Amino acid sequence: MGINERHLDILADYVGARLRERAERPGLTMPARLPAWLKSAEHRAEILRVIGRLRASLTP
Rank of each mutant, 00 (worst) to 15 (best):
A36C: 03
E24R: 10
M1I: 05
G52R: 08
L54D: 02
M1F: 05
M1K: 07
L48Q: 09
A17R: 13
R33Q: 15
R53T: 06
K39E: 10
E42W: 08
G2N: 15
P60R: 14
L58H: 11
R22P: 02
L19Q: 15
K39W: 00
R33D: 10
A32P: 00
L48Y: 04
V50Q: 15
R33W: 00
P31D: 05
P26F: 03
D13S: 14
A12E: 13
R55H: 06
I3Y: 08
E24G: 06
L58V: 04
R53Y: 10
R6L: 08
R49S: 11
L48E: 10
E46I: 04
A56M: 08
I47F: 10
L54H: 01
E42F: 12
L38S: 05
A45G: 07
L28G: 12
M30G: 01
R6P: 00
V15L: 05
E21H: 12
M30R: 11
L54N: 01
S40R: 09
R20I: 09
T29Y: 02
L8H: 00
A17F: 01
A17L: 01
Y14P: 01
G2S: 15
Y14R: 03
S57D: 15
R25K: 09
R53G: 03
G2D: 15
L8G: 00
A56R: 12
R25N: 13
